[in-house]
Design a protein around this nucleic acid. Structure first.
Length: 202
DNA sequence: CCAACGATGGGT
DNA sequence: CCCATCGTTGGA
């Protein structure tokens, strides 16, 4: 079942935790790809020093962050990588959940193609397709041309699910935010304990 | 106009 | 640990 608006317009930490186990789906002209979310991070602007919206910083490209929950904020990093934020909370509360890793489910060959991996090798290199925030965007063809897209639409959306019986959600500190001072130790990263598809670092 | 920066990823 | 890489941002 597609997740609806009311799910996203809630407390960001709850959304970050509850998105674990759900599936991100993208329909494009070249096919459908989907993956199970195994790792997320919450960014709690404007107070959170790790968040782009810290201190209510607001640029044109950040507009979606300030919308009500249920939109995608897609941003570019280091000139050639993209990341996807799931916008949460009510309008004018600039908080979001970064999707950090997926377990590939549908369109594995297409994901490999987009990642520059021979489709025949894709199954062997499964975890390398989507075990990082920018890798999963490349595999799922997510870039700034769809920044602000409504996740309650039919192109990019999330299907509800959750952990299996034998899976446990754990939290830890967030990755690559050493600049965030007292916020760098907040346990706002969520992942499936021991899952092989989570991003490598830390 | 222009320099600094980066919620990454890949290599050593 | 090191660094390539380049669009965006914000200050001059």
């Amino acid at each position: 079942m597609k997740i609806e608006r009311s799910f996203y317009e809630r407390n960001t930490l709850n959304v970050a935790r509850e998105l674990i186990g759900c599936s991100l789906v993208h329909r494009t002209p070249d096919g459908i790809t989907s993956g199970r979310i195994v790792e997320t991070e919450a960014y709690l602007g404007p107070e959170d020093k790790a968040a782009h919206s810290y201190g209510s910083r607001h640029t044109k490209l950040m507009d979606p962050l300030y919308q009500r929950g249920g939109y995608a904020h897609i941003f570019q990093l280091h000139g050639y990588n993209y990341c996807i934020n799931i916008v949460t909370e009510k309008i004018n509360i600039p908080q979001a959940v970064l999707i950090r890793a997926l377990e590939p489910v549908k369109g594995i060959g297409l994901m490999g193609l987009r990642r520059g991996i021979d489709p025949k090798e894709s199954v062997k290199k499964l975890r390398n397709l989507t075990n990082g925030p920018s890798k999963l965007c490349e595999a799922m063809s997510i870039d700034t041309s769809i920044n602000g897209i409504d996740l309650c639409g039919n192109e990019l959306f999330i299907e509800s699910d959750g952990p299996n019986k034998d899976e446990v959600i754990v939290s830890s500190t967030r990755i690559n935010i050493d600049y965030a001072e007292e916020f760098k130790n907040k346990p706002w990263r969520f992942l499936l304990d021991g899952n092989k598809f989570v991003s490598k670092k830390k």
